[in-house]
Amino acid sequence: MYKIKISDLPALFDKLSEKYDVFLPVDFDNGAKYKKYEKGDVLSEKLNTVKSPKDFFFPQTEDMMRFKTEGKKIDVIDIREPKDDFIVFGVTECDVKSFEVLDNVFLSEPADTYYAEKRAHGVLISRACSKPSETCFCKTYGIDPSEPSGDISTWKADGTLYLRPNTDKGEAVISVISGILTEADDDEVNKEKEKINKILDRLPLKNLTTEGFGAGKTAELFDRPEWAGLSQSCLGCGTCTFVCPTCQCYDIRDFKTNDGVIRYRCWDSCMYSEFTKMSAGQPRLTQKERFRQRFMHKLVYYPENNGGLYSCVGCGRCLQSCPISMNIVKVMKALGGKNE
């Protein structure tokens, strides 16, 4: 365990940014947002950024390759460039866990090399959530925000930031800044953890459970009448999927430039009407089916394929962003628990 005074954080970020691109949440008028560190930037106190840090590994738009065409000939050009190491600082535990969810998808065979490359070069520095929001429900999924993981864990207590490297990548980062860190024991951190756990007991969603969901529940849940009511006012926009740290659906599209074609991928949303549309037909005809797909995927299908792991981490972003305030918590409360 190491420590550094909060007031000395600028020095830490300056030092780190000499070697790495450092991204950290910074407060803006419209909420906190990850930003590349520049001198003078202050780490936001807000835990949830509007968009999640999945952007760094799975960006909203990503060019994949180029095609040059000449007459009937096609040339495929790989446009990927080697990536440098970078640090994402201040990731909350729910967001750290979201990478486990994404890894299961993108790194399973055949691995997605675009994502894998970024994961290999990204260092996650997490932080304990000393002031969770009313919309937080990570505990529901057994995530402990007082014990953050990632390559380096950090805790803030009494004007001091405590750091604990967890991986080789983390150690390497610590060695860059070891000159400005001092060794510390666990006492203060343990006290902070206790404090956080007490707060967790006061959260309004603390009793939310995953009971009734998980692998093997498809038949039970799929035709439940509640879906119609839950989805009736869904606008079919993609807000929930775009702010979600675990949503990973994408589209692959071509853009015709004045000089060849760029093939890029961009986030897509199961909430969109054309998501599954093909010339032969449309398996998810109404918003009800599309809405159901999103939650069934997070709470049943994904766990079925990934050893029971849910593809929701309880960050609460969708609770804050949905235009009509319909969200996974309301779905879980309506469908979960004991079924009479």
Binding site: K51, Q60, L235, G236, C237, G238, T239, T241, F242, V243, S269, Y272, S273, E274, P323
Partner: peptide, 21 residues
């Protein structure tokens, strides 16, 4: 982030198929 919330909530945006779709 092009979530389309502004479009989808807009009472004046009622095209059956938006040009952007």
């Amino acid at each position: 982030i092009r979530c389309n919330a502004c479009r989808d909530v807009c009472p004046a945006c009622t095209c059956e198929k938006c040009v952007f779709d």
